[in-house]
Design a protein around this nucleic acid. Structure first.
Lengths: 212, 212
DNA sequence: CATTTAAATGAATAAGCATTCATTCATAAT
DNA sequence: ATTATGAATGAATGCTTATTCATTTAAATG
């Protein structure tokens, strides 16, 4: 029996809640100050708790940051899986739903985008970050590939190379996030979505109805 | 008269060279360790010089980093302007040349890409970084817009909304950089270029020759 | 209520780092 | 050859920050 399993429900719940609370505080601080200027004290403060609290729940700063990245990765995945599930059983509709989900209020939130870019910025030199970032893409592109293959078959599209199209869509999706994050002003989630839908219209001209 | 302008030509040249040397050392260190773990000592060491050298030439770390970002921004701009200049006087060819230039050895070098993402990751909370990053895009998108407008007119393409297409192309370009930087392996400059060219083929089907 | 156990605090510690500046080295001027 | 000036050094300084841990607070148990 692990020590945790002896705990009473209330306290066990508290531990999970506190961890999430601290992760969310970390997200806030990273968005506000950047990864470089985020200190343990900032995170603790943003959570309304005391100095040592992060070490108590995460042992180290490194660990907190890893868990933070993991957290937004899972939230991201949950979001798009959900979008596919809720979409009608039609490949064009599903494609639209999947890609629109990237510009949800929940995941394309400025704070979350700031966190993604903060970690991408360090990913090259941090194997842990890199791995998590890669995982995000592999899962996503598998699902995307399936849907597109089905659409190509159904729509009798010739001359479309699926792997390249998938890379292209994902690249555009990430690049639009950058634009939302950094553009002088006025470029928001809706604009990003519109740009992506126009891309899909160009590639799948017989299914434009699904993308408007 | 500023103190620097009193200097003898040789000395002024030496100063410029040293600054460039330090900026390049900064790029190396950022690529190797990330922005967060790059210290003044690392930069000095990478340049084969002593502790205080960066403060001597740049006053502060902040300043060095700003200048480093500026440096790659100018290098980037020079690269694509050059590509357009060298391209034949044909809008499709120019479009191809402009976009291919993003995957040059010089600018799509892994170290440079690491630097771009490092700064993008901090741009939200650092007005100076943000501004420089914005400038990069505004100049680029102006030129891109001109070329595309000409191509649309010449090729009698209807139903293409230039602003959205421009946003889309730039987004994809940046996203492909991310893919080069982070992908597990095997995704390189040539792949990125191919993906982009396929996009252009979809949008401008009557000019595919220029994109292959 | 008394006792046990876990959670939280925050002052103290120690390591890391940017910056300073007195000193040394190299080069140009006379 | 001597002097003057700029460039470079690197040890010392002082600040910031992650981590530790003795102590306090709160909750659950019997």
């Amino acid at each position: 029996m692990t020590p945790t399993s002896n705990l009473q429900p209330k306290r066990r719940a508290a531990k999970v809640i506190r961890r999430r609370q601290l992760i969310e505080a970390a997200i806030k601080s990273i968005a506000k100050r950047g990864l470089g200027d985020t200190t343990m004290a900032h995170v603790a403060q943003a959570a309304g708790l005391s100095q040592g609290i992060v070490n108590l729940h995460f042992d180290s700063k490194d660990n907190l940051l890893n868990e933070t990245l993991n957290y937004i990765r899972h939230e991201y995945e949950e979001n798009w899986r959900n979008a596919i599930d809720k979409a009608p059983n039609d490949s064009a509709q599903q494609l639209a739903a999947l890609l629109r989900s990237d510009y949800n209020k929940k995941v394309a939130d400025i704070q979350k985008l700031a966190v993604w870019f903060a970690f991408w910025g360090e990913a090259k030199s941090r194997p842990t970050y890199k791995k998590i970032c890669q995982e995000r893409v592999t899962d996503y592109s598998q699902s995307l590939t399936k849907i597109i293959d089905r659409l190509i078959k159904e729509g009798e599209y010739k001359y479309i190379k699926t792997p390249q199209l998938v890379e292209g869509i994902i690249a555009m999706a990430d690049g639009l996030w950058l634009n939302i994050l950094i553009s002088a002003q006025g470029f928001g989630r809706q604009n990003a979505e519109a740009v992506m839908m126009q891309y899909l219209c160009h590639v799948f001209p017989n299914h434009q109805a699904a993308f408007n």
